[in-house]
Each structure stands twice: as structure tokens, then as C-alpha cells.
């Protein structure tokens, strides 16, 4: 497998002559992304009917975290050429020359296989299969296929990030029902406005790297319209878990209020000529998902 988009282009980054330390290998796992993935996995684990032994629950979360991190490491290996061009990603260990790309690939593959096997042997094979599928989807479908080819990259590729609650749920019940599907839909429809808010104020970066993000290909106005459409769509999807018994009254109230605020953010982005509102919306989108999942978890723990 080779990087096809920018072969032969010079990488204008000064390489570090020293090999990377432990911190560089931890950075390969994208710990900040991992934290939200683990939290959404925890939400699935907690709200699922039934109970899982606490040790096995910790193992399930560990597998979700390591699996997501491993997929991130493989993503960094594949995207090392564009990471070196983009300001946001230029400081990553591979473009900086602190970690050898082959080592990063081996690191990612070993951790990915280990996390799936451990999930299967310790918890159950349904959760392991979904974890393996999510990792493969992120690496092969999003990173290698869609990211450099279509402005819908994060719409379809966003599915990879939507699997963790389903994995957590399946770890408890051993199956997939309407509940985890609703949580999947919640994150799936949340991803486009979240990512496009980032892409709006980083469009120069994506443009230089040749990544066809929506603001680069369709322009800012079209992106802002799509963001508003997705936030409107997200309102009924966000409150749906209540109607299917996954969330209670507190969740219904919280999801309605937070989703309405998300819509307000999208409207502000449409009216804003600068990128200030987009930055605020990006920050709010993270808080939005975190709070929704926190309410779900809190309600279940209190009940």
C-alpha cells in the first residue's frame, strides 16, 4: 500500500535525527480522540440492559481504547505525506522523523489485532467482530479510500467513530438491537457538522494537502448549509433514544436543549463572515456529545 496523492512532493519538515521516545508512541494513538471514543463506549456499556463483570467491563473499555488508538496509528502511517504538509498535523511523530513509518504501521497492526483478540477471548466475539470491523472501516474505507477522493469522506467515514457505543452495548448483551443503533446514528449524524466546523477554519490546510474537504470543494456557503441541515436532522435523532427507552426524562430535556443550541451554533456559522463562529461550534460540538453521553450514563447510574 502506498500513498498515492502526493508522491514525489518534497516534505518541508525538518527531521529529528534522534529516535522517538515513549511519548511519541503514545501520540501515535491519538489520545485526545481516544478519550471521546472511550467515553462513548462507556455510554454503550452502561446503558445496555444487563450487567458485565467489572473486570470484563474494564477490559472491554481497554480494548475499545487500544483498538481506536491502533487505527489512529495506522492512519498516521498512511497519511504521513499529507500530515507533513498540514500545519495542524505537522508536529506528529512520523512527519517529524521521530518514529519510523514501518514501526508505526507494525505498532498499529499489532495493537489492533491484539485488541480484537482480547475482546473476543475475554468478553465476547460479537463485540470483537464490531471492533475489528470498525478498525478496518476506519483504515481501509475512510483513510485509504474516501479521505482523498470525495468531499463526503467524513460523512461515510464517520461511521467508524460511531461504532464504540455499539461495541460497549454488545460487550454486555452479546447482540445489537435498536438501542445501540440509535447511539450509532447519534454519533454518525453528529460527525459531519463537527468535522466541517473544523474544516471551515482549517480549509487552507486541507486545500494545500489536496484533501477534498467540503469547504475546499463546494465552498464555505454550501458547507454551512449542509452543517445546518445535519444539525436539524440531529434534533430528532438525539431525542430518539428517549422514545425507545434508552434515555429518561433528563435525557429528553438535555438532548432537546443541547440540540437546539447546536442548531443555533450552525445558524451563527451561516451568518458569520469570519471563522470565529465555526471555532466556537467545533468546541461546542465536542461538549454536546460529551454532555449527551454523560446524561445517559448519569441517568442509568442514578436509576
Amino acid at each position: 500500500m502506498t500513498d498515492t496523492a502526493f508522491e514525489g512532493q518534497p516534505v518541508s519538515v525538518q527531521a529529528d535525527s534522534l529516535p522517538g521516545g515513549v511519548a511519541d508512541y503514545i501520540a501515535l494513538l491519538k489520545p485526545r480522540v481516544m478519550s471521546l471514543v472511550v467515553f462513548s463506549g462507556l455510554a454503550g456499556l452502561v446503558v445496555a440492559p444487563g450487567a458485565l463483570h467489572p473486570v470484563l467491563a474494564v477490559v472491554a473499555l481497554l480494548c475499545i481504547a487500544v483498538g481506536a488508538g491502533a487505527a489512529g496509528a495506522i492512519n498516521m502511517w498512511y497519511d504521513r505525506d499529507i500530515d507533513a504538509i498540514m500545519e495542524r498535523t505537522r508536529g506528529r511523530p512520523i512527519p517529524q522523523g521521530r518514529v519510523n513509518p514501518d514501526e508505526a504501521l507494525a505498532f498499529g497492526v499489532v495493537l489492533s489485532v491484539a485488541s480484537v483478540l482480547l475482546m473476543g477471548l475475554a468478553v465476547n466475539w460479537v463485540a470483537a467482530a464490531i471492533l475489528g470491523f470498525a478498525n478496518a472501516f476506519y483504515v481501509f474505507v475512510y483513510t485509504m479510500w474516501l479521505k482523498r477522493r470525495t468531499p463526503q469522506n467524513i460523512v461515510i467515514g464517520g461511521a467508524a467513530g460511531a461504532f464504540p457505543p455499539m461495541i460497549g452495548w454488545a460487550a454486555v448483551t452479546g447482540d445489537v438491537t435498536i438501542g445501540p443503533l440509535l447511539l450509532f446514528c447519534l454519533i454518525f449524524f453528529w460527525t459531519p457538522p463537527h468535522f466541517w466546523a473544523l474544516a471551515l477554519f482549517r480549509s487552507g490546510d486541507y486545500s494545500r494537502a489536496g484533501v477534498p474537504m467540503l469547504p475546499v470543494v463546494a465552498g464555505e456557503a454550501a458547507t454551512k448549509r449542509q452543517m445546518l441541515a445535519y444539525t436539524l436532522l440531529l434534533l430528532p435523532i438525539a431525542i430518539a433514544p428517549h422514545w425507545f427507552g434508552v434515555g429518561g426524562i433528563a435525557y429528553l430535556v438535555g438532548a432537546t436543549g443541547l440540540s437546539l443550541l447546536f442548531i443555533v451554533c450552525a445558524v451563527r456559522v451561516m451568518l458569520d463572515k469570519t471563522h470565529r463562529a465555526a471555532k466556537q461550534m467545533f468546541a461546542y460540538s465536542i461538549l454536546y456529545l460529551f454532555l449527551l453521553l454523560a446524561i445517559l450514563i448519569g441517568e442509568k447510574l442514578v436509576a
Partner: peptide
């Protein structure tokens, strides 16, 4: 992540 090394002439 911090952008630590900026290419310089």
C-alpha cells in the same frame, strides 16, 4: 498537538 519545528533557512 504543538507544531514544534518550523522549517527555517
Amino acid at each position: 498537538m504543538a507544531n514544534t519545528t518550523v522549517p527555517s533557512s
